[in-house]
Amino acid sequence: MLGFEWERIWTNDLWFAVPLIVAMSLVYAATRHEDLGAIFRHAVRVARWIVLFLVVLWGLLFLMSWFQ
């Protein structure tokens, strides 16, 4: 049966990237603002960009492996 393998998602090593993304976003945003509210808002934007970058990179690698 071809089902969606949730087990493989929850045990994927990519989850190790999440704490790093959160830390990088918060520290980077905190070097741009003094106010905590502004820091958190900016951190969300930075995290979105990092995730987008990783997704694009993943897509490129996936395509390259497809045509290998």
Partner: peptide, 16 residues
């Protein structure tokens, strides 16, 4: 005296 940012930096960096 920038206590909020001190806590934010310490918690974030020391956690990772």
């Amino acid at each position: 005296g920038r206590l909020k940012k001190a806590v934010l930096y310490f918690v974030t960096i020391m956690t990772i």
